[in-house]
Design a protein around this nucleic acid. Structure first.
Length: 277
DNA sequence: AGTAGTGTTCGGCC
DNA sequence: TGGCCGAACACTAC
């Protein structure tokens, strides 16, 4: 769900509700005054990076799906929705997402030039932002939503492999052609991601992300949690060149704690049989 | 069947 | 004041 292209898919999928009046508001979100939305018409749907935006006159509902969020259109699960919008003919259900209201003009709230999927995406602005932080490592730069809104861990790993740059290379030290390639590929890969995801063939195009071996035959990939973000990087030491030196290198390499892991779910729930969904 | 992950925010602590 | 860290969130493909 979470990366930018998935938000574009969602936006396209809900076009039938554009201009339609919300006639029912439910859900366990705590931050929405349900009466605020009731009987209001949806002016537009927008996306900014990983944000899905439901625009009303004078305010916008911001939806962020984080890692686990899901949605359903004209169908629903039996679990309570975080936000349910009912229309005269149809419904939109959002689960496990972060919801917020943004007051006022949405153009005031967002820098559209930072969104790799937006027509206002500005590569030069991205270049400026990166060169303002020359010591930032490339894996952090790509995940920085102020610079590359919409880019997530998959796109990060694939872009760095495509351009042959080691994730711990610093932004200021890589050749300018590589900097340009990084910015260019962030957008190109995002749109390829979009098409592959629509065709349900995204995973089979991954060259390094969640892979074991270098696609160019260099043997096992290196897999480490890197950068301030500590997100998993998959990369090939031979294909991806490292530039620049780091004073604080140790702090940018993280190992997950060994030993007993905590359960990642609080309660188990029996899956609902498909025929009841 | 148990686990890791397409992510961000928040409070607490130095 | 601010950076760093862990917890929380809560779904599902593999």
């Amino acid at each position: 769900m979470p990366e930018g292209p998935s938000m574009v898919i969602l936006k396209e999928a809900v076009q039938e509700f554009k201009g339609k009046k919300v006639v029912e508001v439910e859900g366990n979100t705590k931050v929405i005054d349900k009466d605020l939305l009731l009987n209001k018409a949806i002016v537009d749907f927008k996306t900014w990076g990983k944000h899905f935006l439901i625009c009303f006159k004078g305010f916008t509902v911001r939806v962020h799906f984080l890692l686990f969020g899901t949605y359903q259109i004209n169908e629903h699960k039996d679990t309570p929705a975080r936000l349910h919008l009912g229309f005269r003919d149809g419904e939109l259900n959002i689960y496990a997402a972060s919801i917020r209201i943004i007051e006022g003009d949405i153009d005031e709230a967002y820098d559209w030039t930072a969104d790799v999927m937006n027509e206002s995406w500005n590569p030069l602005a991205a270049k400026k932002k990166m060169l303002a932080r020359p010591d930032m490592v490339c894996c952090d730069a790509l995940l920085n939503q102020d610079i590359f809104a919409g880019v997530g861990n998959i796109i990060k790993n694939e872009v760095l492999f495509r351009i042959g740059i080691h994730p711990l290379s610093t932004v200021g030290a890589i050749p300018k052609t590589k900097l340009a390639a990084m910015i260019r590929e962030a957008k190109i890969y995002s749109f390829e991601f979009l098409e592959w995801k629509k065709a349900f063939v995204l995973k089979q195009h991954w060259l390094v992300h969640q892979q074991r071996n270098c696609p160019n035959g260099h043997g096992p990939l290196t897999i480490m949690h890197l950068g301030k973000t500590k997100r998993k990087s998959y990369f090939c030491e031979q294909c991806q060149k490292r530039y620049g030196t780091l004073e604080n290198e140790a702090s940018l390499i993280w190992k997950p704690p060994a030993g007993v892991r905590k359960p990642n779910r609080i309660a188990t729930r029996k899956p609902v049989p498909k025929k009841f969904r």
